[in-house]
Design a protein around this nucleic acid. Sequence first.
DNA 1: CATTTGTATAACGAATCCTTTATATAACTA
DNA 2: TAGTTATATAAAGGATTCGTTATACAAATG
Lengths: 107, 107
Amino acid sequence: MTPDKFAALADPTRLALLSALATGEKTVNELTAPFDMSQPAISRHLKILQEAGLIMRRIDGTKRPCRLAPDGLEQIEAWANMMRRTYAANYDRLDQVLANLPEGDAT
Amino acid sequence: MTPDKFAALADPTRLALLSALATGEKTVNELTAPFDMSQPAISRHLKILQEAGLIMRRIDGTKRPCRLAPDGLEQIEAWANMMRRTYAANYDRLDQVLANLPEGDAT
DNA sequence: CATTTGTATAACGAATCCTTTATATAACTA
DNA sequence: TAGTTATATAAAGGATTCGTTATACAAATG
């Protein structure tokens, strides 16, 4: 897993753009409208999302409709799942040991 | 989903720290060793991971062993899965429409 | 053909992030 | 109790990121 995919999701505007795209395919102008931010700023965010493999675009005349890229999302899902499974495999026994320790948790 | 969790994963060192923790619980010094980076830098990264809910720490004398926080990983997994499902629900029909369009895809 | 529309790129300043060194603190150890 | 070990915090610099305005360009429109 490359950090670039997570970096693309690390910005609130980009996360909101993805949510907007979950509803359906949208052009750059349609995506810009609700954001109270300039169109070039949105275009830049979309470029970052595309380079991270999280959205795709097609050409429709002068428009560039954007859609979610399910492969990118699936990679993230698979990574988190793998980490959880590895954690579980390594910690299941340790969990019980720690649960009986008198040590307090650290914040 | 808060962007902070993704921001915590957006740094290569922090992503590697998480992978190191998948193997098992480790202290700050143990985590610092392989990274060719100062201990304060690692401590700062660990703080960011903890504040994002991706790791937990306990107190063992002067040591602060770190472990993965499965809840944080599960939230990410659930988010990606929800986005994919929403995508599928909204795009399944559109996919077929687009597949038959003469337009080329845009990169 | 001239104009407008949709989007991208460039330049630049402000804010944030990452790292280092220096130092502080708390708990072992002798 | 003095020294050492494990970790955290602070200050400061350079690099990166995010936003804006100005502008370019290609396609639609009249």
